[in-house]
């Protein structure tokens, strides 16, 4: 027996003198297959991380060239003439945000109503079918919505736009300068291909996405609280307003923001219905609007290398906005009471 061993034995019996018991260090011996698998899995993670970072970095570097060349006027200039050095995203960014806001403004009531109907009012036997239909709507390709907007909605919406402009034209947003309601021969073509139309088409794409998130959240509202509200004499609507909506508030906001993220990035449906203009167009009913993604689709073909950088800068701005919105939505959903479980 060596000296150190006896000292350890002494310490172990005499608990008061200094050294506490420490947890054993567990060493894991991995087999060959496990080691290979670990390396492969980490490799998969690294490959994905590298490729994704590459895309982001490439966009950032190429975009930064154009932004550096344009300076601060990149945010204020409305024209898009990169080859003559006069370009900025003021008009397209404004158009993108306006279209997305119209879409959310229309889609939010539809989504809340549909989600509430499915989770609270629909007959039990019908619910799975309705859930399927709403999820299916979210999967319909955007070009189909674009066709619908271009060939069906445009004709159907003209009288509505005209009516809004005639009776609510005193609100600046709904005013259409070239349209005189008093003139019986006034042509309704000033209402075609407007931001309003694009917003409606995008709303149709956004509503199912938001509705399916909201429905999931509403369905999680605790039965005990629902029945408590009903037992206190509340009507069904009272129960929904005082239990379901407060419980699902985080999901409602998060769902709407995820929908907004989708609306911001939508390309084809918007491209098909709008006629592009490069001015800030605050009159949403009037012909002409623009969005960043349709600007890219419109201009990439004949772009010089510098113009391509400019398009990437625009794409980068769009990407950053969408990312902010999506992360915000994720955080709101997670922090909320209903999202804590998921």
């Amino acid at each position: 027996m060596t000296g150190s061993n006896t000292r350890e034995a002494f310490r172990a019996t005499d608990g008061s003198s200094g050294q506490e018991d420490s947890p054993r260090q567990l060493t894991t011996v991995r087999g060959a297959s496990d080691s290979v698998f670990r390396v492969a899995a980490h490799g998969g993670g690294v490959v994905v991380l590298l490729s994704m970072t590459l895309v982001g970095l490439f966009l950032a570097v190429r975009g930064a060239e154009a932004i550096a060349a344009a300076g601060p006027s990149f945010l204020t200039e409305q024209d898009w003439e990169p080859n003559s050095g006069r370009f900025g995203i003021a008009a397209v960014l404004f158009g993108t945000v306006v279209i997305a806001l119209i879409a959310i403004f229309v889609a939010l009531p539809l989504a809340v109503g549909t989600a509430t109907y499915i989770s609270e009012y629909a007959p039990l036997g019908l619910r799975p079918l309705l859930v399927g239909i709403v999820d299916l709507m979210a999967a319909i390709p955007s070009v189909v919505y674009g066709l619908w907007g271009m060939f069906w909605l445009e004709g159907a919406i003209l009288p509505v736009a005209q009516w809004i402009s005639t009776y609510f034209g005193w609100i600046p947003v709904f005013n259409v300068p070239n349209f005189n309601p008093g003139d019986p021969l006034a042509t309704p073509t000033v209402f075609t291909a407007s931001a309003f139309l694009a917003g409606l088409v995008v709303a149709m794409m956004v509503a199912p996405v938001a509705a399916s998130i909201m429905r999931e959240v509403f369905a999680q509202a605790p039965i005990g609280e629902r029945e408590g509200a009903l037992a206190l004499g509340s009507t069904k609507w009272g129960m929904i307003r005082s239990v379901v909506y407060p419980f699902g508030l985080g999901g409602m906001i998060g769902g709407a923001m995820l929908g907004l993220g989708r609306a911001l990035g939508e390309t084809i449906a918007v491209y098909l219905v709008i006629s592009p203009v490069f001015v800030i167009q605050p009159n949403i009913l009037q012909t002409g609007s623009n969005s960043i993604s349709s600007l890219i689709a419109l201009r990439y073909g004949e772009a010089s290398p510098f113009e391509l950088s400019a398009l990437m800068a625009a794409g980068l701005v769009l990407f950053l906005i969408t990312m902010l919105v999506n992360f915000g939505a994720g955080i709101i959903i997670q922090r909320s009471r209903s999202g804590a479980a998921s």
Partner: peptide, 18 residues
């Protein structure tokens, strides 16, 4: 990073490859 990339607009994917 993956969650951030779900926000990448589809047209920008195309622009990157282009």
């Amino acid at each position: 990073v993956v969650e951030a990339m779900t926000a990448l607009p589809s047209i920008v994917c195309g622009l990157f490859i282009y």
